[in-house]
C-alpha cells in the first residue's frame, strides 16, 4: 500500500515521537510512505479563518504534489485531515474556483486535477488493511490495558465531509483498541473537543475544556489515553501539568499517539516508538505490559 505521507507541522516540531513511531509502524505494516517534505502547513484553523484563497491555494499545492506522485495523501493529524479533505472536495466540485486556484498554482508549475483522496492513518488501518488482517499482525496483545479513545473533532465532524464514523457514537478507534487486545474505556469526552484551537489565545478556556476530558478518562480508571491528532495530544499531554493546576487535581494520565499504541501491539520496542518522548511519563503503561523502557 502506497501513500503520500503528510505528517503536519506538529509531528515535525512538538511531537517528533509521532513522526518516528508512524515511520516505524509503517515499515512493520508494509506501508510505503513517500513523505511530502516540501508541503506547507494546512493552516490549522488560523489561515482558513483569515484568508480563504490562501487556505485553498496552499492545500491545493499539497494535493497537487500528491497527484504528481500518483498517491493518495495519508496524514496523522485530524485537523490537517479535515483541511485537506475539504479543499479537495471543494475544488473537485467547483470548476470556477478550481480555475482560479490553478491560476495561482501555475506560478509554481503545478496543477490541481482532483484525482486523489485524503485519508488518515486510523482509516487506513481499518478500511485499507482491515481489522482482521491487522489482528493477525498483533504480536503482543495489549491484554488488560484500559485505553481511553480520544477521537478529536476534525476526524468526526462535519460528518457530510468526513463520513467515516458516526460523530454521535463513534466506534472506529474503539474497534482498533479491541483489535490490539486492549479494552476501550467508555466516556462521553471521547468524541468531544480538546480545546487546542484557543490554547494560544485563551489558555484558561482551553484548559477547562481539556481538563473535563482528562478528569473523565481518569475517573473511568483509564491506564492511558490515545489520540489521533497531535493537536489534541498537545492539549492533553504537555499541557497536562497546567490542566492539573486549573483542576486542582493530579491527573498523570499517559497520552499516547495512535501509531505508538499500534506499534506496541505489533511488538515494536518502546524506544522505536519514542515512548520516552511523551511529556507525561508513559512508564506506567510499559510496566503494565511488563516492558522495559
Amino acid at each position: 500500500m502506497k501513500f503520500a505521507y503528510y505528517p503536519g507541522c506538529s509531528a515535525k516540531t512538538t511531537c517528533p515521537e509521532l513522526d518516528q513511531s508512524m515511520k516505524a509502524v509503517a515499515k512493520k505494516l508494509d506501508l510505503d510512505l513517500a513523505e511530502l517534505e516540501v508541503a506547507t502547513c494546512t493552516g490549522s484553523r488560523q489561515i482558513r479563518d483569515s484568508n480563504e484563497e490562501l487556505f485553498l491555494t496552499l492545500n491545493a499545492r499539497t494535493l497537487a504534489l500528491a497527484e504528481r506522485l500518483e498517491r493518495d495523501v495519508m496524514t496523522v493529524c485530524a485537523t490537517c485531515l479535515l483541511n485537506l479533505t475539504e479543499v479537495n472536495a471543494t475544488l473537485k466540485q467547483n470548476a470556477e474556483l478550481r480555475r482560479k486556484i490553478n491560476a495561482n498554482l501555475a506560478a509554481v508549475g503545478l496543477e490541481f486535477r482532483g484525482t486523489r483522496e485524503v485519508t488518515h492513518f486510523l482509516w487506513v488501518l481499518l478500511r485499507d488493511i482491515g481489522a482482521e488482517a491487522l489482528a493477525k499482525k498483533v504480536a503482543r496483545p495489549l491484554r488488560g490495558l484500559r485505553v481511553a479513545p480520544f477521537y478529536g473533532c476534525h476526524i468526526l465532524r462535519p460528518k457530510d465531509v468526513l463520513g467515516f464514523d458516526d460523530p454521535d457514537s463513534p466506534t472506529s478507534l474503539d474497534t482498533l483498541i479491541r483489535v490490539l487486545g486492549a479494552d476501550p474505556v467508555a466516556y462521553d469526552g471521547k468524541k468531544r473537543c480538546c480545546g487546542f484551537h484557543v490554547l494560544m489565545t485563551k489558555e484558561d478556556l482551553a484548559l477547562k475544556i481539556s481538563g473535563r476530558r482528562l478528569s473523565q478518562a481518569r475517573d473511568e480508571a483509564a491506564d492511558c489515553l490515545v489520540t489521533t491528532c497531535p493537536l489534541c495530544h498537545s492539549s492533553l499531554d504537555p499541557y497536562q501539568s497546567a490542566v492539573e493546576k486549573t483542576l486542582g487535581r493530579k491527573i498523570r494520565l499517559p497520552v499516547i499517539h495512535l501509531p505508538q499504541l499500534v506499534g506496541l501491539g505489533l511488538g515494536l520496542a518502546p524506544r522505536e516508538l519514542k515512548l520516552e518522548g511523551n511529556a507525561v511519563s508513559t512508564a506506567p503503561v510499559l510496566e503494565k505490559m511488563a516492558l522495559q523502557a
Binding site: T13, T14, T57, L58, N104, L105, A107, E276
Partner: peptide
Amino acid sequence: RKGKVQVRPQTVQGIEEVRKLFKAV
C-alpha cells in the same frame, strides 16, 4: 528536555515556491 522544542525554526524545502504562491494570492 523531551526533544519537543526546536530552538531555531526549520524552513520547509522549496520555500521560494510557497512565497510565490503567497504573492499570487
